[in-house]
C-alpha cells in the first residue's frame, strides 16, 4: 500500500480556498470595503470626514447610517444635486453616482457613520436666546435636543457645523433645495423655512442649535 501523495489533498484545498475567497462579504469585509470607498470622499470631506468649509463640504463623520444612505440615494437618483444654483450639491451628485452598487452605498454609509463626530468651531454669531424661540418649529421632527428622528426622516442637527446649517437653511429658503417634488423631505423643509424671516433669524436659530449637546 502506498502512502497518499501530498498532491492529492493540496489541489482540492487550493480550489476550495480560491472558491471561498470569492464569496460574499462578511461583516469585517463590509467595514473594509466602506473604508476603501471612503477614500473617494476624502479630498472634499477630509480624512476624518470632518468636512472642509472652503469647498462647502459638510462634516459627515458620525451622521446616522440611515440618513447618509437616504441622502446618497437622493443624489444617485438626481432628486438632490441637480439644481442649477446648488453648486455644492452638483459637486456631490456625480460623486454619489460613482458608487457601483447598493452594497457599496451601504458599506460607505456604515463606515462614515462609524467615524467619531468632528469638533465644532463657531463661525457665526447669532443670538441663541432669540433662536430658542424659533427652534420651537423644528422640535416636532428634529427633537428637543436636535437629536434627529429616523421615523420623520429628520437628521440630527446637534453637532452639525454652523456654517453648513446656515448655508443649507438659506438654500431651503430660496428654493435651491426643496423645489424638486422627487425630494419630499426637502420640499417640507422649504416650507418650514418660511418661519425664518431673514438672515438674522437663520443665524439665531443656528446659534441655538449650536448650544445643543450631540
Amino acid at each position: 500500500m502506498t502512502r497518499p501523495r501530498a498532491s492529492s489533498w493540496i489541489l482540492p484545498t487550493l480550489v476550495l480556498g480560491l472558491a471561498l475567497s470569492g464569496c460574499q462579504l462578511g461583516t469585517a469585509s463590509v467595514a473594509i470595503r466602506g473604508k476603501e470607498l471612503f477614500q473617494t470622499c476624502v479630498p472634499c470631506h477630509g480624512p476624518a470626514g470632518a468636512g472642509r468649509h472652503e469647498v462647502g463640504a459638510p462634516g459627515i463623520a458620525g451622521m446616522s447610517d440611515w440618513y447618509i444612505q437616504q441622502e446618497l440615494r437622493k443624489f444617485v437618483s438626481g432628486a438632490r444635486g441637480t439644481n442649477f444654483d446648488d453648486l455644492e450639491g452638483m459637486h456631490m451628485q456625480p460623486m454619489a453616482l460613482s458608487l457601483a452598487s447598493d452594497d457599496d452605498l451601504k458599506a460607505v454609509s456604515q463606515y462614515v457613520s462609524s467615524l467619531p463626530q468632528p469638533r465644532r468651531i463657531a463661525t457665526i454669531h447669532g443670538d441663541a436666546q432669540a433662536g430658542q424661540a424659533l427652534y420651537a418649529t423644528c422640535i416636532a421632527c428634529h427633537g428637543v435636543n436636535g437629536q434627529g428622528n429616523e421615523a420623520m426622516k429628520a437628521p440630527r442637527l446637534a453637532g452639525v457645523k454652523d456654517w453648513y446649517l446656515v448655508g443649507t437653511l438659506k438654500k431651503f429658503k430660496s428654493g435651491v433645495r426643496g423645489s424638486n417634488p422627487a425630494d419630499p423631505e426637502d420640499v417640507m423643509m422649504h416650507s418650514m423655512t418660511a418661519t425664518l424671516a431673514d438672515d438674522k433669524a437663520i443665524q439665531d436659530v443656528v446659534a441655538y442649535i449650536e448650544t445643543l449637546k450631540p
Partner: peptide, 19 residues
C-alpha cells in the same frame, strides 16, 4: 411652475462659489 421655481437664483454661503 416647478422649473420656474427651481431656477430662482440663490443666496449663497460661499463667496468663492458665488454664482
Amino acid at each position: 411652475p416647478y422649473t420656474a421655481q427651481a431656477a430662482n437664483p440663490a443666496s449663497h454661503t460661499h463667496a468663492s462659489l458665488d454664482l
